[in-house]
């Protein structure tokens, strides 16, 4: 049996999660600790991938990164980067659709660290960086970690947007969920059963780990 979809799914999900955590942590911090104009609108935009159909999301991404778009042409001409119909497209699709699943718990965790605790550290002469490093992150890391696990799980299950942006090219952009769809379409029940089993077991493990993280000590 071809194990490439499994390998690709892990590669795409892992890369997407790295971006999700890096970018999402910044977003979560801004949403949790800062007040600014348009915060409510930004919140809706971040959360939107949770509710709009993945195909719609994929359509947007196709429009944004396709050859006809400014961004798509810019990336290709300047960096030689091709997004659409490559595994990088799958990364972007997974990144966008898993972002809200990370930002929501991460923001809640950061908000959960009361401003009194951070002010207490500032009053002791600590810089903003020290406050984040010594107080905020140590107290919020469980929520952040749980969010990262959820984001990774969401990325492994990404189907609609990935299909739109990266397509279904076996050995190149065919991830596990798409391979399952393919196998069913081709009447290959054996492959479908194995892949379905793998992904079911995987999601069970992920949810178990996420649950462990959220059972905090503090």
């Amino acid at each position: 049996m071809d194990l490439y979809p499994l390998y690709l799914t892990i590669k795409v999900s892992f890369t997407a999660t790295v971006f999700t955590v890096a970018f999402g942590l910044l977003l979560a911090w801004v949403m949790a600790k800062r007040e600014f104009l348009g915060k409510a609108v930004l919140d809706i935009i971040i959360m939107q991938p949770l509710v709009i159909p993945p195909t719609v999301l994929g359509y947007y991404l196709l429009g944004a990164f396709g050859r006809l778009s400014f961004l798509g042409r810019f990336l290709e001409d300047v960096f030689g980067l091709q997004i659409v119909f490559t595994w990088k497209g799958a990364v972007i699709a997974s990144f966008i659709s898993s972002l809200p699943l990370f930002v929501k718990p991460a923001r809640a965790a950061l908000e959960g660290v009361g401003s009194d605790l951070e002010d207490a550290a500032r009053l002791l002469g600590k810089t903003e960086l020290q406050v984040i490093k010594d107080i905020t992150l140590p107290l919020a890391w469980r929520g952040i970690a749980a969010g990262a696990v959820m984001a990774f799980a969401r990325a492994t299950g990404e189907f609609g947007a990935t299909l739109m942006v990266a397509g279904n090219i076996p050995g190149l952009t065919q991830t596990l969920p798409i391979a399952i769809y393919d196998a069913v379409q081709a009447g290959d029940a054996q492959t479908a059963n194995v892949l379905v089993g793998v992904i079911t077991l995987f999601s069970f493990i992920v949810l178990y780990i996420a649950g462990r993280f959220t059972k905090g000590r503090f």
């Binding site: 002010d119 207490a120 550290a121 503090f218």
Partner: peptide, 20 residues
């Protein structure tokens, strides 16, 4: 001056001890 440069001791009503 930012809080950290004021060298003021502040005891919060609920103490704000670092729980970790």
């Amino acid at each position: 001056r930012p809080i950290r440069e004021r060298k003021i001791g502040y005891l919060f009503q609920d103490y704000a001890l670092f729980p970790h």
